[in-house]
Design a protein around this nucleic acid. Structure first.
Lengths: 224, 224, 224, 224
DNA sequence: TATGAATGAGTGTTCATTCAT
DNA sequence: TATGAATGAACACTCATTCAT
């Protein structure tokens, strides 16, 4: 953002309170959705406000009625995407008690949302370090909480089954497995979210050669 | 931009033949290294040639003596990084015959290089869709070969142990686990490459709850 | 140069339809006029957008609100100049039937416009090979038609008076005589358009020593 | 020229004295010739020193061994072209006494050299206002003398035949006819220099409808 | 004689943003 | 609500030229 200046009425004021959706909200959502597409295709830096204006059918100046800066726009997209996935997860975990199942629910929820909203999720994970200060902190907080949830789920699993591994490494590896799919996923080849979730859950929970027994494990040392 | 005109001596001509490193080569390498840092910090689009000029201590115009465009610069970085990691892998796999060990070698090689050259690797994986036409195709080809190598390793493993899983999904999941670390890795917390490689190898090969046996696996269905 | 992207509303769209002149049009005309001066003084290549911005009292970026490129600007100038002179010619030829008079009308029209719009005409004739592809083709087409008109006039004259000469060479010689004046014309010394038109018409139609009779003509051969 | 600085040994010093052609001179001529081609194709402003370096097979820096600036290069080309054509004219006029023949010799000499050295002549007439101060003045002086010669020839003709016309307008019209040919000349269509010279001489000396007699001349007045 | 390496100043163009209406 | 018009700052890149070797 080049010329930052205070605004009398900020986007945040409007959108953070709960109230019936106004015309403003609906237009905002539309624009957000178009912007998500553009960020997905060109990246945040590569996308210009003119691009956004074109695809959303609004004049360049008109966009600024809806958000005060490009950065804020990214923030709104990321916040909406994140809060939605977190909310869905909360609902789905309700009533599921088996620790392994809870992890599987987490994975399915993540992948399902990821594949249904690939563009938004790509923007979410790809444009990670753009947001500064306030906005960045807020998104980072939501993200930290989401990761925390996953770590907690793994801790439960460990406790329940008397396992030993680094929940942190495991959780972050799991996120890697899942978040990376935007680089390779092809619906025809890789199946739908449920299939993929099962495959990834299996790999994550049992490994690719689980049947061989842990005894075969040998340390390797490489000198080169 | 004025008309881009061919150069009498292009960067590619110089760098693709094998010969003793000249002063030109050394300066080129320096600049490449600095540029890698900047791309890492700001992203390709976000990094300006002025930034590169500043950190590499060369005048803006001087940079263009070494590569004819920003895009070519990215290409050179990516090519160098990729060919190096592929070459190392080849060397390390030599003499290792056990299929599981070969996968472990792959993981260790990747992570070791990744952590030692985090910035370059981040640039490699993050700025994936920038390069167009010729350059993009060349990098994509190297990448495809590298992925292919991993898939082949998993196929060997499957054959040897009579396993059944999608090598493609597994390989790409594995890459996700590994490539994602640039978003979270902290040396103090997460240990060195060998530790991490072991943890990830274990998760990937045995899963987090390998001991429980596959029998406990239940399908989940979620309606929401 | 960043990616050139299509504009939602291009200069061409605006200027090719017939409608009352808007504020946009008026400002456009002003800038076109200033640009003509600058192109005249420095040539197309020698004139910088910064020069244009300075003389037209607009910010550098502001210019691009009116035309999408320097090339398009040249195109607009050339098109306007050419269509105006062609239109005037059409009007003036109406009602004139005597073939010789028609040629004289052509000459007078050309010179009058040339002297009244010297700068524009110099730009028109001097910056002939700049425009590429579409724009160039369009201007070339108008020009071809204009030259064609002149050749036709000479053909009429030939038919009417039973003369024999190459209409093409004659027409292009005539254009040479007229178009070259931008290199030497001085109002005080050379008189106004009418005077000049008469002199040139006389030279072109009767030659400088018409009274001597054609018999004196001798072939020359030079060896050197 | 951006960074003008004095030179210990200037090109002019070398080339303006009469002495046997050295290796320096020969290379200089080659480069001049190549440069003429490039200036012809791209114009003076449009041609870059890099272009010249490329076509003349000399390094960019190497060019500066032969002339101290791009401007000087243009000067050398223009001076050489001009002095050659003037010299030839002098030789050819020797011994020709008939005033009309002398004019015809002038025209033939100009056209012959023009067609044989089209590129150089185009550069000569097209890049007329580039040279500043000293160089410009020198070229302008040669040019003025050349034009003066033509005007004198016409004055002789007038005196000899008791004619009345503006020698200045006539001479400059004649130059227009001749110099303009670079915009339209096609060898196949328009014949060789001799043919063209005869046609133009006839038009210039007798006009296109000389046979009709001067009586038919009517004044035209246009109101529009 | 000739060039590899370098540079300050400039190029055309696009950026996110503003503001009067 | 929405936009036409405008802008300062930045962009990637090229320019003519220099100088140590």
């Amino acid at each position: 953002m080049r010329h930052a200046s205070p605004r009398s009425r900020s986007t945040k004021d409007r959108s953070s309170t709960v109230r019936p959706a106004t015309r403003f909200d609906r237009r905002l959502s539309e624009i957000l959705s178009h912007a998500t597409d553009v960020f997905d295709e060109k990246g945040y830096e590569g996308a210009s406000m003119r691009d956004l204006s074109r695809v959303s059918g609004t004049s360049l100046a008109g966009l600024y009625y809806y958000f005060e800066s490009k950065e804020k726009l990214l923030y709104l997209i990321q916040r909406h995407t994140f809060t939605t996935i977190v909310e869905r997860l909360r609902n789905r975990l309700e009533g599921v008690t088996d620790p392994e199942q809870r992890v599987r629910v987490f994975i399915l929820n993540h992948l399902e949302y990821f594949l249904a909203n690939q563009k938004a999720m790509k923007v979410l994970s790809h444009e990670d370090e753009i947001l500064k200060n306030g906005y960045g902190a807020e998104i980072a907080a939501i993200k930290r909480e989401y990761v925390r949830t996953c770590v907690d789920l793994l801790d439960e699993l460990k406790r329940a089954n008397n396992l030993e591994f680094s929940s942190r490494t495991a959780a972050l590896s799991l996120f890697g497995m899942m978040n990376w799919i935007y680089t390779w996923y092809k619906p025809r080849v890789d199946g739908n979210a449920e299939t993929l979730a099962e495959e990834m859950s299996d790999i994550f929970l049992r490994g690719v050669c689980a049947d061989m027994g842990k005894s075969s494990k040998k340390r390797i040392s490489i000198t080169n």
